[in-house]
Amino acid sequence: MNIRFQFKRGEELKFISHLEIMRVFERAFKRASIQVTHSQGFNPRPNIVFALPMPVGLSSDGEFADVELEKTYELSDFIEKINSHLPEGIKVVDAKEKTTKTKVMGIVNAARYRIDFEAPKNTEINEIISNVLTKKKIIVLKKTKRGENEFDIRPLVYELSGDFAEGTGFFNVLLGAGQNDNVRPELFIEGVQGCIDIPIEMLKMHRIMLYSSSGNLWLPLLDKRFL
């Protein structure tokens, strides 16, 4: 049976890396005696794949993963079982059976973030937002295996709003995400910094949801159209 599930990770667990999150799930499945199928070959790996890596420091309400199980489960049983074997700070919130062959990491193409930041008290949030949105290009340096490349993130800033008071504020931003054209929150902040003269410092980053597009809609990855 193939299941796609949505999970969240809270403040408690946001300092562990993506690789470690994968291991948290592998071990939780073992503890819960939910048998996951394994890949063939020299070094068999459990068949669990994640939608998008979570950088260290990111909390999230909208993460997704696909898992292939040896047996069939009632979805509510599955959720209850795995949750009772996951550490505090990580929780499966929904699960659906998946019948298509598409893998979850192949369909992600946007992510909504709430990014908290610090800036001088007289900062005007609307000015920043319009400044960013009226730019034709926002060039940042993206690290790749071969070094640093210039990368225009403006086409990948789909929506931007925010609020600011008393020296702190936040952006609510929908950014391009996925295997291609991924804009991490740090890169976005770097881009914003390039558009304005005042210094801003990121305080927290939180992923609200991962989406895939269908027609002209952004839909969460558990939408039946993707299953």
């Binding site: 300092f15 562990i16 470690e20 948290v24 071990r27 939780a28 260290v56 420091g57 550490p87 927290k204």
Partner: peptide, 19 residues
Amino acid sequence: SDKILMSVEKPARYTGGEW
């Protein structure tokens, strides 16, 4: 604070909460 934890290598060395 997040700022402290984000400034060090392997912050999970200091946060506990393991199974």
